[in-house]
């Protein structure tokens, strides 16, 4: 994979969620994603950033264009040093929530993006990578 410019937004409060989202919108537009895919990317960033804010308090969203075997894509990485996820299988189930939300967050992100990887250690934090390919 060849890395191009990457941008990061620290997530510490609700305003940062909006900022991460706007950055995602801007980069996906510049890369030439269609407007529905732009909205998918933006929504996925919103879900990931909100998860950081709700469960870990602080963390970081990184947005970067990538090229893999001639295919262009946008990679979103979400990193936090929060409590971690005890049962990943459980949080990936539709409708599961500990915050009183709709429980559509992480499974939703998986459906909005093409690639979704989650890696979490209790007491250490959570790393999520999601990629959308440019068609």
């Amino acid at each position: 994979m060849i890395m191009e410019t990457r941008s990061s937004v620290p997530i510490n409060n609700e305003w940062d969620i909006v900022q991460a989202r706007q950055l995602g919108r801007q980069i996906s537009r510049e890369m030439g994603f269609g407007h529905v895919d732009q909205a998918r990317i933006t929504t996925a960033i919103s879900e990931l950033a909100r998860n950081i804010y709700l469960y870990a308090n602080n963390g970081e969203i990184t947005i970067e264009p990538i090229v893999n075997l001639g295919k262009k894509g946008l990679k979103i990485t979400s990193r936090d040093k929060g409590p971690g996820i005890k049962d990943i299988r459980l949080v990936m189930q539709d409708g599961y929530t500990t915050s009183g939300g709709l429980g559509a967050g992480l499974p939703g992100v998986k459906r909005l993006m093409d690639i979704f990887k989650i890696d979490s250690t209790l007491e250490k934090g959570t790393n999520i990578v999601a990629i959308k390919w440019l068609r």
Partner: peptide, 13 residues
């Protein structure tokens, strides 16, 4: 909006 409706259904909402 159409894009919003598509994403809500993608999310399963």
């Amino acid at each position: 909006r159409p894009a919003v409706a598509i994403i809500l259904t993608d999310l399963g909402i």
